[in-house]
Write a protein that binds this DNA or RNA. Sequence first.
RNA 1: CUGCCCGUAGCUCAACCGGAUAGAGCACCAGCCUUAUAAGCUGGGGGUUACAGGUUCGAUUCCUGUCGGGCAGGCCA
Length: 947
Amino acid sequence: MTEDNKEQSKYQLNLPETTFPMRGDLAKREPAWLKAWQDKKLYESIRKARKGAKKFILHDGPPYANGDIHIGHAVNKILKDIIVKSKTFSGFDAPYVPGWDCHGLPIELVVEKNHGKNIDPAKFRELCRAYAAEQVEKQKKDFIRLGVQADWDNPYLTMDYQTEADIMRALGDIYKNGYLYQGSKPVHWCVDCGSALAEAEVEYEDVNSPAIDVGFKVVSKLAFDRYFEGDVYAVIWTTTPWTLPANQAVSVNAELNYVFIRIDKGIYANKVFIVCEDLMDSFLVRLGKASGEDLFNFGYTIQHVEAGVNLKGVVLQHPFDSRQVPIITGDHVTIDAGTGLVHTAAAHGNDDWLVMRANFPEQKPRVLMGGDGKFFASELVEFEAIRGLTRQDANKVILAKMQESGHLLASARLNHSFPHCWRHKTPLMQLATHQWFIGMNAQDINGKALREHANKAVDETEFFPSWGRARLEAMIKNRPDWCVSRQRNWGVPMPLFVHKETGEPHPKTSELLEQAALLTEKTGVEAWFSLDGAAFLAQHAPESAEQYKKVTDTLDVWFDSGSTHAAVLKRRPELAFPADLYLEGSDQHRGWFQSSLLTGCAIDGHAPYKALLTHGFVVDGSGHKMSKSKGNVVAPQKVMDTYGADILRLWVASTDYSGELTISDEILKRVAESYRRIRNTLRFLLANLADFDASKDLLPVNEWLEIDRYALHLTDKLQTEILADYDRYEFHLAVQKFVGFCSEDLGGFYLDILKDRLYTTGEASHARRVAQSTLHHITHTMMRLMAPILSFTANEIWETLGLDADKTVFEELWYSLPAHGLSDVDIQSWQTVLEVRALANKAIEEKRAAGLVGSSLQSELDIYADGATFEALNRLNDDLRFVLITSRATLHQRAGALEVQVAPSAHTKCDRCWHYRADVGADAAHPHICGRCVSNLFGKGEARSHA
RNA sequence: CUGCCCGUAGCUCAACCGGAUAGAGCACCAGCCUUAUAAGCUGGGGGUUACAGGUUCGAUUCCUGUCGGGCAGGCCA
């Protein structure tokens, strides 16, 4: 031990002391806190603490129960948790029931992969249910690890029996309100599976197809009479000749120009062809090749150019059937390939189907083919020669027929990518099948269309950020009817009965559906799948039982999650409908936000939420999306194991989530730095409160020094601003302010100045106790403000403060600060002091660089000021030197610019307080310490007025 | 290809309805302190606000285009 240290130990200082470690060691310690929260039944205690309070309902969008959670899940759940916790601090009762989406194709695919393809459907569903349950548990574990407080013991699963039944009831309500209708729609169809395929089951492979130009002879001679002297043909191009029997129209693009070309030589001489201007050249090349003439050069005349929009309504003769078809317009027609006139068969193409529905809502797709991929053998197929034939065989017959009749203008082969079944590797076809729809333009009993309800609902919803409104609005405006039926195994059945011949739903549909729902409540979806329809009808609707059959379709999984407001919000007594907030990634405008809006509107006539909040997606440090192949994936589990959940939470909170959220090693390091700043600040506060017992030592504000009250004002301002940020869900601003407060207001100002008073005045002196009283209020404010984000650390502070061990910080309300009692003038003058302080620091730094002083206490200041600046400094009296952390600060009134002169002190340094003072050693009994220290240790103690 | 959104110091974010020299924190550099010490304090450097035009007395802010990125959808007949 050195001589100095011996000297020091003689004179008591009040140094900070705490069990709150400098390093959080979060990754290791957080799990223990989680366990403690669980043991304390934290979620239940919060519910009890807020019992009867106004509710705030954040309804959880159910993640899909498959796979480990990724960083996007973590962002979503953490944001929700921050909101729920902050609302709870604001006094709301904010129960949070987490959910999972459990039905659907991805789970079917995994189960199929694990257990093979030929499983009994009932057994298959059992396996799906078990798998989903397993996934839920896995994901739940990770969500809990994030520090998210929720009713984890009672989540909602879309596969809960009760929920499955309520999803059926939601469908029933929509049916009752008149929005459900039947129609047909083309789907990917595999003739080997004999069933529809989902997009995920489709693989694209190259195939070689015929590519033919076919002339449809114009038969109407209305607007363009004078150009129709010879035979005029509208020319289409197709790679699927076999769909021509199903042709219902020819589509053109209204915006494009179409040329009428007269061919001057060869076999097509004197015939006129209509093609798109932009595709004329390539067409002429093909036509020339077919006729053996070089038509491209001087072989044709352009007779006329007409805008596509004016071709609408022209009537064409089908190339081999007797019917005539119209020209219609559609945006799907492009100039990428072909002729700019598109053969349109609603049964065999989604675009075709859409454009036909837009033009002729009453016309049904011409379905001439069965699920086996063969044309019907019946008279439905007008062209006798192809009845019963496969697609390939029909192609040949059709081509030969059109060749003979002269409608086949050109024929070639084309290699192109084409959808295939991933099981059988067979080429798929688009085939119109019977489906159920929720009609956007269908009207309720008051004649109001669903789309109108939806528009109004969007109008009434609050959006964070505001552009969400425009996005949802655009989607509602443009979206086609919602096809809610699927032909799958693992889903909620559509518990409907339809007439065996007409297909009409049973007149007692609502009652039958409720009966089915009651059964489902007991045994789940299996109740319907295993239901003997005939017996069920015989029991519940015996009058016409034999005329109806059970529908075997399941519901789109988006319908499941889209009706959780009915199955969860309305069902659970602790929740409320509509929810205050739905919060999901921006992809959910198309997904859950919309599906929930539509079911909400179709059932209740309004949205199931009052506000929507959207966050972006997580991307890597250079702004690119994460993918396994790029190797830039950041796993939340890894971040928690390395840095801890609080760091992950702080990262989420400090990022502006309205755009993309970027994450990288550097970013995480920076976040960890911020965390250390926060942590050390709190550590200092806690360490200086170690000997402070608020129940005995807390002093009222009117006894505080003015700098303390100014610090209180800064704290109050921080709290006000951060609470506003929480209210607007702008957490990144709150974090910025919080860290800034730690660095600037506390570290760089108040605490730096306060150290002298805390350490050197008498332990229980008034001067020290008022300082601690201030720190007490600051600590309690900060602990609460940070708790929604840095939940683990706030909890640790709670423990360190020795507060009620049976409770946690999360049951608290925001801290209620006492009034600081400063006037605007007082506050203004402190801001002036801070400016002078900055100037003084600069001046001291100059001397320091010159080697004249080291610590700022080594310097003595002479400050020349005037006017308001002088007044602001003068009111501090001798305490000015403490504010500037110098051994002497003498103020001189002088007109002109503010000036700070620095000189090294000529006095001796006090061993105890380190100030350089003339009176060091004045008391012979204590030769190494100053008079102030002598008084603080052995006398009545120093008096302070301002700082 | 279309709709919506984003692009400000190395990183995360500010900048009131268009207003003056674009601000913080972290990082970096230099110094101090050894009484928050694997901490703390002080000072400093660093930005053509993605780029190019336009409107305006004045643009990070408004308009157009380009580039880069994200989400959703479309396309391959």
